[in-house]
Amino acid sequence: MKSLKQHPWTAGASVLFSLFILGSLCTGFAPGKAIGQNFLLFLGQMLRVLPCIFILIGLFDVWVKTESVEKHLGHGSGLLSYGWAVLLAGTTVGGLHVALPVAHALYIKRARLSVVLVFLSAAGACRIPMTLFEASFLGWRFTCIRFAVSLPLILLSSATIGWWFDRLHYRLPDAGEMTPDK
């Protein structure tokens, strides 16, 4: 309930949305029914992946020491940290919506912002299972050129944005509240 109060927009939209879907079901309004079906389809997909992801995040939170994340991915870690971020991103499943909570968990463990951003973008562009899939449909040349161009740009832009937001002393929301060792 508390979270409903914190998200008046989502709460309002959910009420409208469910009224719309229910109304469409009663009156047989086809677009509404189709949208409702899409919603359930995606909800099902989310519910199959997300519990695992959040349990893994919880385990990560409890077992992995902040110092070790900070040492390899935090301030003062070298260029290798970007390599770790890309590798880690390559093994993730799902899309941005799955990578986001993971990225946030890394940040709470003091990974630096540019590494977190590399992870996020690479999770979009370089997931290994997806890449295999892409190459089988569009050919290896396509995939290679996409990698060769996007990966350097991702590294460069993430490093720049990270540096810039660090200089502004930017903190991710909730980063203070969700301290790992509470």
């Binding site: 979270s3 409903l4 914190q6 998200h7 927009w9 989502t10 709460a11 939209a13 959910s14 919603f39 995606f42 909800l43 989310m46 997300l50 519990p51 959040f54 349990i55 995040i57 919880g58 385990l59 939170d61 409890v62 077992w63 919506h97 909570p101 909730d174 969700m178």
Partner: peptide
């Protein structure tokens, strides 16, 4: 760990609903 998982999930669930 499981409590952390649940807490974080519930916290972000409204945003997920919005996205869906």
């Amino acid at each position: 760990a499981l409590r952390i998982a649940l807490r974080r999930f519930l916290k972000i669930a409204p945003a997920f609903l919005g996205m869906l």
